[in-house]
Write a protein that binds this DNA or RNA. Structure first.
Length: 500
RNA sequence: GGGCCUCUAGCUCAGUUGGUUAGAGCAACGGACUUUUAAUCCGUGGGUCGUCGGUUCGAGCCCGACGGGGCCUACCA
């Protein structure tokens, strides 16, 4: 820590500071001259929550005789000549009133309080727990101390903050808005619940590389960086899949990871360049057992956090996550919805004709891509309740095992909740020969036009050649799960989303 | 990547067909007040109107470029 002299009236560019900051800096100097503006410790005996919990229903104008010492941030001030009121707020949003009177603290301390305490400051008070003549639970202070002097004023608490301000100053959002704190808590509780569900099923949590020499496990443009020590290009991972499968090869039969993925693509209401991903793999499971797991993870989270499967969203609507979620076939549900039978054998020319009739523009060589686009057009738009869409086209799912009985499709599902893709699950492809063929197809396709062609991960293929047990696997976007549970946009479920 | 919108005090916002000194609430500063709850009352200060350039006798307002932000769209196994 340096002891450089602090500029008081100007910032580093020599600009005049806003009036209010200059005034507060002067108060900070005064506090330091009198003792301290940022004391290292304070003799706190209670939290605000503890005091509130101890006296839930006191009558008006009661003195309890209990002396407490606590601290909080000043959210409102009401100072009169000889009696001051301040609303102190704890980090969890709980508030209590502090009162400072001439009788109890004396003229000098009262004057210093009025001179030096601003809205937003952290203030310590010691005194008796009482209720005011209006019945407000209060601390009648016998002494006070500055706990931490604030240099910038809090924003006006009587208007809503704009979305941009909230995202760029989340620390202020958390101070002033209950819902912001609530969302952080919900997220933490959802994570706890999911880890509990995994633990009950004997899954191990692991962490796999985020810096990778070859990016794989999904198709997305990666962020690139450089290692000085190895003098080599590295990628921030787009998925943990290929490493978690190596873990399964190694005998970690039930494994999951919750961690960040990075994709160098567009950001919108449902996409963030870095996002939290859950992936889980279960040896001797398949896409059915992993679908059961996924349903349990989400339903347990809703029950643990909200005590119900009928979750109330931001707009007041109900997201019903209860019951056993239906599993519908992609080809069958599409055939039903569009009025003609569509199978993996349907000529691509017929799919193109159908797409044109519906006004969908698809420019892609893959049969499966047409099926998926048509399915989204005909079926997805009407999906609201949680639904597993099962048995996908083979040519768009290179890491998935062929269906055990239906030709031309793979054992893959996507879970849709409120029309959003929430999770995806496979019976994993474990045959090293077929996996190599699929990768080669991908590379060939990509090399034709895509500068971001996926490279063959030889080490991953080698691991498969040592034998991966038949397995079910799933991946779920955590941020999107939070969106489903709250109805908020992705930038509200992430505490500090990327901003320029 | 394409299109549209937006930027005024610490915060939230007004600001008329281009016209003299750019306003309000909260916050700040000075004063009064021992039971307030967004305390109240009296008074005061605070602005490079995002930045640069242009049109004009005159620009917060019109035009252009750049920057920040938003929405739609495109890309996205």
């Amino acid at each position: 820590m340096s002891d450089q002299p602090q500029p008081v009236e100007q910032d580093e560019e020599g600009q005049d500071l806003p009036e209010q900051i200059a005034i507060r800096l002067a108060k900070r100097e005064r506090l330091i001259a009198l003792g301290d503006a940022y004391p290292v410790s304070l003799p706190i005996t209670h939290t605000i929550s503890q005091v509130r919990a101890a006296y839930p229903e006191l009558d008006i104008d009661v003195a309890t005789g209990q002396i407490v010492a606590l601290a909080g941030r000043v959210m409102f001030q009401r100072n009169t000549g000889k009696l001051c009121f301040a609303t102190l707020q704890a980090g969890n949003g709980e508030r209590i009133q502090a009162m400072l009177s001439l009788d109890k603290v004396g003229q000098e301390e009262l004057d210093l309080y009025k001179e030096l305490v601003d809205l937003g400051d952290h203030v310590f008070v010691e005194g008796e727990v009482i209720t005011s003549k209006r019945g407000e639970l209060s601390i009648m202070a016998t002494s006070w101390k500055m706990a931490a002097k604030t240099i910038r004023p809090l924003p006006n608490l009587h208007n809503e903050l704009g979305e941009e301000f909230r995202v760029r100053h989340r620390y202020i959002d958390l101070i002033v808005r209950d819902r912001a704190r609530e969302v952080v808590q919900i997220r933490a509780k959802v994570m706890q619940s999911m880890r509990k569900t995994f633990a009950e099923r004997a899954y191990l949590e692991v962490e796999t590389p985020m810096l990778q020499t070859i990016h794989g496990g999904a198709s997305a443009r990666p962020f690139k960086t450089h290692s000085n020590a190895f003098d080599t290009e590295l990628f921030l991972r787009i998925a943990p899949e290929l490493f978690l499968k190596r873990a399964v090869v190694g005998g970690i039969d039930r494994v999951f990871e919750i961690n960040r993925n990075f994709r160098n693509e567009g950001a919108d209401r449902t996409h963030s360049p870095e996002f939290a991903m859950l992936e889980a793999y279960e040896a001797y499971g398949d896409y059915n057992t992993i679908a059961d797991l996924t349903q349990a993870l989400i339903q347990n989270a809703a029950m643990d956090v909200f005590g119900t499967h009928q979750v109330v969203l931001e707009d007041g609507s109900i997201n019903d996550l209860g019951g056993n979620w239906p599993r519908i076939s992609m080809f069958e549900s599409l055939s039903e919805a569009c009025g003609m039978a569509i199978t993996p054998e349907t000529p691509i020319s017929e799919l193109k004709a159908l797409a044109e009739r519906e006004g969908i523009e698809i420019d892609h060589p893959l049969h499966g891509k047409y099926v998926e686009e048509l399915w989204e057009h005909f079926v997805k738009v009407n999906l609201v309740n949680p639904t597993f869409v099962i048995d996908f086209p083979v040519d768009t799912s290179p890491l998935t095992r062929n269906h055990r009985s239906k030709p031309g499709v793979v054992e893959k599902w996507d879970l849709y909740i409120r029309g959003y893709e929430q999770a995806t699950g496979y019976s994993e492809l474990v045959d090293p020969v077929i996996q190599r063929e699929r990768f080669v197809e991908q590379v060939t396709l990509a090399a034709a036009g895509d500068p971001e062609a996926m490279k063959l991960d030889e080490d991953f293929l080698k691991a498969l050649e040592f034998g991966m047990p038949p397995s079910g696997g799933m991946g779920m976007g955590i941020d999107r799960l939070l969106m489903s549970l709250t109805g908020l946009g992705i930038r509200e479920t992430i505490m500090f989303p990327l901003v320029k």
